[in-house]
Nucleic acid binder design. Structure first.
Lengths: 255, 255
DNA sequence: TAGTGGTCTAGACCACAGG
DNA sequence: CTGTGGTCTAGACCACTAA
């Protein structure tokens, strides 16, 4: 078991959800099969129906099952949805694919925030921010350029990390800086001179861009980042429904 | 009020959620402000705490509020998240931006499904599918090429629509074909000859691609589509958190 | 310590699917 | 009609935050 999965512990409904997820993804209920009724599951696990429903809501959000009034839940598929930490951390993502993540800090500067940065990070005029430029690699091959702006509290921690540290989210968590919510925007952008030099592509060639603003549980922004990927190295996937949705990032596969 | 929003009707928690959403987005609680306690909201609306929590879970998924044990919920922002129908329907999306959606059916053919299509739509070998190629425009300007594969049950309905019909999801709903779940993948692809001709770009120039498979409440696939957008016309946004996430598509704004 | 959200229970009624 | 998921209630206890 990956250490990530142990987070199922702590609450009952997470344990039930983890167990059901395991049963589903290992084919225990078949594809397009039906799950037992909520009442049956409640009895089977020795919990109330409400707890079972809370567990099933997680699977619903992940696109594993549908639900419709009147009939049993249907197994949609064995969709692989990434955990939140896999989504935010290049390092976790790479490792989950069996690739070796690498990176190089190109620059780290401290300067007053401009208007856009103040807006994104909710900072007072004159506040200084830390700005990093990193090249990210998979098994030695450049795939992404990452530009991140940190507010002072976070930047001070980042600035003291060794320049060759692979993961940033882990040390930050140890400093009590938590990532709980993120807004992402995905589009296409042309490579500028820096992008071209670092990624080894032509200037003006298209890159897949992900802009991301992350906040902690109090709603305070902790990071504003702009990642630019070489085409063909990444795709973003989302499952959504009338009720909920989820995003996942994965290596691109053939058409 | 847009007709879409009337769907808040039907259940209590949706009404509560709609009311709170309105209060938040109109600034009633301020940015980074605090919501009243769950108990207070329950009393205010005359419902149980469980119902209030169900409503708040929706706002949480939309990125409007955070939550943390021990303190009141924090208003994250006034994020505009699109409804599921806006996300699936080009027509709804265009109108929500105040643009005039247009389109032209370039071709509609019926032929046996190939291996990939059978896989995506869960069809038996030899089953025939309907394949459409459409050019989509905003206020007359080409922005997207859409290739959709329908299984027979759905294709038969689509094939009988007038070629210049703007929205397909609406007539389908009237035929009892419901869209409840979708999986999306977003990446970059080079324009082929057809794309270049229809969109008026050079062959090989980059396009933002969204692949989408949609299913109905029983888990049966009803559509497999591949949309290719001109760069600069669209971006995709997602809010996600430790608990949940949502996707929205919107017009690109300046950097 | 007091207030808050997170979790869990037990029971109720309804709307809808399908025989 | 029966069985199912959808909704709602009333109450309980716990873990955590902030004063």
């Amino acid at each position: 078991m990956a250490p990530d999965q142990d987070r199922a512990a702590g609450s009952l409904y997470r344990k039930v959800a983890a167990d059901l997820r395991e049963a589903i993804t290992s084919g225990g209920y078949g594809d397009n099969g039906r799950l037992p009724a909520e009442g049956a599951l409640a009895e089977q696990y020795g919990v109330s129906r409400g707890t079972v429903r809370q567990a099933l809501a997680m699977l619903r959000a992940d696109g594993l099952v549908t639900s419709r009034r009147g009939t049993r839940r249907v197994v949609l598929g064995t969709a692989r949805v990434q955990s939140f930490s896999e989504l935010l951390s290049f390092t976790h993502w790479a490792r989950s694919m069996g690739e070796e993540p690498g990176g190089r800090l190109e620059s780290l500067i401290r300067r007053p925030a401009d208007a856009a940065e103040r807006e994104q990070l909710r900072l007072e005029p004159g506040t200084e921010v830390y700005v990093t430029l990193r090249l990210r690699t998979l098994s030695g091959k450049p795939v992404m350029v990452e530009r991140t702006v940190y507010p002072p509290r976070v930047g001070e921690v980042v600035a003291q990390l060794p320049p060759d540290v692979v993961s940033h989210t882990e040390p930050l968590r140890e400093h009590g800086i938590l990532f709980t919510d993120a807004d992402h925007t995905i589009d296409v952008v042309a490579a500028n001179a820096d992008d071209a030099r670092l990624l080894g592509c032509r200037r003006g060639s298209p890159l897949l861009r992900e802009k991301r603003r992350t906040t902690d549980p109090t709603g305070t922004p902790v990071e504003w980042s702009q990642d630019r990927y070489l085409p063909g190295t990444v795709a973003f996937s989302i499952h959504n429904s009338l009720a909920s949705s989820a995003l996942s990032r994965h290596a691109r596969e053939n058409d």
